[in-house]
Design a protein around this nucleic acid. Structure first.
Lengths: 205, 205
DNA sequence: TTATATACTGTAAAAATATACAGTATAAAT
DNA sequence: ATTTATACTGTATATTTTTACAGTATATAA
């Protein structure tokens, strides 16, 4: 990262302190009051310099639209609140607010591939794969899946979590519990929509 | 804390998500856009209700002057690099640098209880509990465990992950795979050290 | 000497924003 | 039957805030 001038560092620190104290970023005028400047433009120019050098991001047009850019080399990834969605038998899992049970603070890149949401598993059909009722399966929204992937598939209005196997126009959806039967779909007769695939799982003991 | 209505909770969550994403709080209009309200006054009234109930603070006259009031019970969202340790048959799992396979960015409070490290599971003895080889079990360092907990126990030099059951002097360490046998320890004859217990699990597919 | 970068003052206008006020609708409680 | 609480729409306005523009001053480099 580029070096900061003495004044730029002062402004950056001042923003950080204000953020910590209030929970939201300062305005130009507030920075001026803090540091004794008499023109809002003084703060403005320092902020733009800090932005150019990569220390902060400024959302144009927004009031208090300053965010501190974390040093990516140190932390690597971002902490997000990943939504948890119940696997409802009918209808696709959507990220609409009313479907979100809660949110879990974690990194969307914590698994090998990034993911978009957690699906709360209902039913016992994946028991033999070590997936239990109420486990949270991390789902990446994608239609690019390959045989053997654990996928979220919609048939008509029913959504299920199954292993994917496709041979020409025959799609097989394989549960991992011998007590459940394989669903075979002839894609010439019936449509199947792949909503996403699982990239990981978490469970609370 | 006072109970929140469904809509108030939605607004609170929406503010939290916005904050996490952008680093600064949303405006009334932005909350409306997010939740589908058509009047900024809808957001305003929910915010005032949240303020009155103690969930947020609003700095009057300031744009985006919303701050989340933390209560200790609500999970703090700290991004940490949680270490992954291999379950070595001999010797306790230590957090010494040479034992750390890698680090995973996630929140130590992502499960119901906080944890200290991940243990990479070796062997198949927990198969029936839905725990597979190479799963990562989140371990909280503690000696306070109760019957039924999944615990990390050291017997002599051997460390294992088993279900805990203690009846006076007799400690039983129960695997979850019928092909493995229960380890019975008479604590008058042999020492057993509880290193910690599992509070969760993650798996990469 | 002449740029050039840093570091400001001072002013002003346009846009963003909070917030008050007047309503409507609905369900639950009295 | 009437009140009360929740949950909004719709409009308006005063205030906050960003941001552009025109300057001044000083130190350093070319």
């Amino acid at each position: 990262m580029k070096e900061l001038t003495k004044q730029q560092l002062k402004v950056l620190k001042s923003v950080e302190v204000y953020l910590k104290k209030t929970g939201f970023p300062p305005t130009r005028v507030e920075i001026c009051n803090e540091l004794g400047f008499k023109s809002p433009n003084a703060a403005e120019m320092h902020l733009r310099a800090l932005e150019k050098k990569g220390y902060i991001a400024i959302k144009s047009g927004s009031s208090r639209g300053i965010s501190i850019v974390k040093n990516q080399k140190v932390f690597g990834t971002n902490l997000d609140q990943m939504p948890v969605i119940g696997l409802v038998a009918a209808g696709s899992p959507t990220l609409a607010e009313e479907n979100i049970e809660k949110r879990i603070p974690c990194d969307p890149n914590m698994f090998k591939e990034n993911f978009d949401y957690f699906l709360r598993v209902k039913g016992l059909s994946m028991m033999d794969a070590g997936i239990h009722e109420d486990d949270l399966v991390a789902i990446k929204k994608t239609t690019e899946v390959k045989n053997g992937d654990l996928v979220v598939v919609r048939l008509e209005d029913e959504v299920t979590l199954k292993y994917f196997k496709k041979d020409n126009y025959i799609l097989e959806l394989i549960p991992a519990n011998k007590d459940f039967s394989i669903i075979k779909v002839d894609l010439r007769e019936q449509e199947a929509f792949v909503e996403g695939k699982s990239v990981g799982l978490i469970r609370t003991h």
